[in-house]
Design a protein around this nucleic acid. Structure first.
Lengths: 345, 345
DNA sequence: CCTGAATTGATTGACGTCAATCATTTTTGA
DNA sequence: TCAAAAATGATTGACGTCAATCAATTCAGG
């Protein structure tokens, strides 16, 4: 009924409490055969450390940090808001959480933000991996001092973090293409694709997935343009407008990028929603309204609230050295005007 | 830096530790003005109970139970498996979790299963609410002895449980209709709808949502039949076959029910996938393969693994009287052959 | 003002782990 | 075989809360 304690383990192993403790907390100076005896006893009793007692004894407030692009990007504002909602829960777990914002798409900004965390005693850090390639040394420094790292939304190289939480962008792009294809019903047409930057792995993946499926299953839909917007509305507006002018029979627009206001602007003014199937990413205010009014047909959303929840839970288990929660694969929502969430983002 | 303790609260409030304790743990026999003083001090210090210390002191193994339809239903097998994966995490939280299976679709089976839990000292119970109408008295009995209740997948009446975890089936049906409509591109056609039983709220909602959207936005798609299958493959097979025979120009099939093997059978043998847009619910083995082979176009999945995770987390917070985690609205996955999860269910 | 009831104060052992100290025993190597 | 090194044992205070006890004080009603 009652869980075994470390004393029980020691007793069964035939060693003192002190030795059992040395084994479990890796304090060293233990003979191999003692380690063995203790481990066998742990196994036999199914001993698991009483986390409550451990935390209480250690009596340490763990510090977490979330390093996110500034919240002027509405997508990251959603993450920020969710983090805010999670604060009470973090508090009862005896943790604090700082949010560090950095200028998105500015080279070196992530690096600088992360560098500020070195030596500050953080137990875990979640960061949006966009631009992490230029921060590998800082990430290594953090890990070196025992900080647990979780990449969010956009992955950083495998060796540089403990875990990644984000969607599979290749699949997202493929799904987008399938939906476009379905909506065409074998009618031929031209598609325009927008991406923030072909330097960003996320966007590259989405575009690649999109093109793969079109090529394989819907050959009569051609990708006429792949536009780079740098996630800026003004650029998107101009380039999309130009592309529309020089292309006949545009039947689909896939915006794999963020910052969609510019795209919607053009759609609203120059495009017949009946003729053009339009699909984008991330449900933020303006996009939602475009969806509701029929200008946009589908929005793929990576559910940042869910990602934040997972990051928090994962960091908690990492810093306490507990087994990670069994997360199923993260699958983005596909929103239409008919299944929008009740809360507005 | 360090969190305030109850002693700090007592001191600030100008009462003894004992009195502060009496207030926080509702032990009674405290004068109103003392309660007030303590509450003000709590507020001012931002005191939150140290959960680790509380759990340690109480030293109680909490018992949870999940009451699910038997796992011969592959959908519930998925839940079962996820629960299995969550066991280590429950163990470190000093909790145990029993899984009680009952015969699905058998009147009284849920009631009987729940009745077996009364007086057994459970701290929290999650149950699939299908058929809960006949078990309201047992639910009341459980709540009466302090058991926290969470309805899963299918809700039970609002007053009979603490919380509900499941998808919005109306929205799911609406989304299904939208996808069907998109794929028709203004071409007229006939749709066949299948449901397990029109007594089940879930299925009724899905069908209603489906019909709503068709009526409003795609009037040239008619619902020719609404078939009740009792979630049995044999019935689905027969009735669908008959419906197909007597209907010309069938262009869509929406299966809102579980137990889809029968439907797939018929599709495989008698239906041209090119002509008929087919959409169903819940990604289980056979459906997945039908999706991959092009017989089924879309599967809406309510992500039972996620639901189980939430139920576990929610029950934990309920039994420990902690603030509930900030869950965003649960949105079902829309699977196509292109965005299937890596793991097979 | 007195009495019984209500309220408050003071204190304590337990919960299981951590982290430390100090003494003792065993092992190793020259 | 002996000294140094390695390993082990024994013990302890702290962590913050819970749940209990018992004594002391305040309050209400007659």
């Amino acid at each position: 009924m009652k869980n075994p304690t470390l004393s029980d383990v020691a007793q069964l192993a035939g060693v003192s409490y002190a030795t059992a403790d040395r084994v479990l907390n890796r304090r060293g100076n233990v003979a191999a055969k003692s380690v063995d005896k203790v481990e066998r006893a742990v196994e036999e009793l199914g001993y698991v450390r009483n986390v409550s007692a451990a935390k209480l004894s250690r009596n340490s407030q763990q510090k977490l940090a979330f390093v996110l692009p500034d919240r002027s990007h509405k997508f990251f504002a959603r993450m920020n808001a969710q983090l805010e909602r999670a604060m009470p829960n973090l508090k009862v777990a005896q943790m604090t959480c700082d949010v560090i914002e950095f200028a998105a798409f500015e080279a070196g900004a992530l690096r600088a933000a992360l560098a500020g965390l070195v030596g500050q005693g953080y137990g875990g850090v979640a960061f949006v991996g966009q631009g992490a390639d230029g921060a590998l040394d800082v990430l290594a420094a953090l890990r070196g001092e025992g900080v647990k790292l979780v990449a969010l939304v956009s992955d950083s190289p495998a060796g540089s973090r403990d875990s990644y939480i984000g969607i599979d962008n290749l699949k997202a792009g493929r799904a987008a293409a399938r939906l476009v294809g379905m909506a065409h019903r074998n009618v031929a047409g031209q598609a325009i694709v927008l991406a923030g930057s072909m330097d960003l792995r996320d966007h590259v993946d989405r575009v690649a997935g999109f093109q793969d499926v079109l090529k394989a299953d819907f050959p009569n839909i051609q990708v006429a343009h792949v536009i780079e917007t740098k996630d800026r509305s003004s650029i998107a507006r101009e380039k999309l407008r130009a592309a529309l002018k020089e292309t006949t029979n545009v039947t689909a627009i896939y915006n794999a990028a963020g910052g969609q206001e510019g795209v919607i602007d053009v759609l609203r003014r120059f495009v017949d929603p009946e003729q053009v199937f339009c699909i984008g990413h991330e449900l933020i205010g303006p996009i939602r309204r475009a969806l509701e009014s029929g200008i946009v047909d589908i929005v793929i959303d990576q559910l940042p609230e869910l990602e934040v929840n997972r990051a928090v839970a994962l960091l908690q288990s990492l810093v306490d050295e507990l087994p990670p929660p069994p997360f199923p694969e993260l699958v983005p929502a596909i929103y239409m005007r008919d299944n929008l969430p009740t809360e507005d983002f």
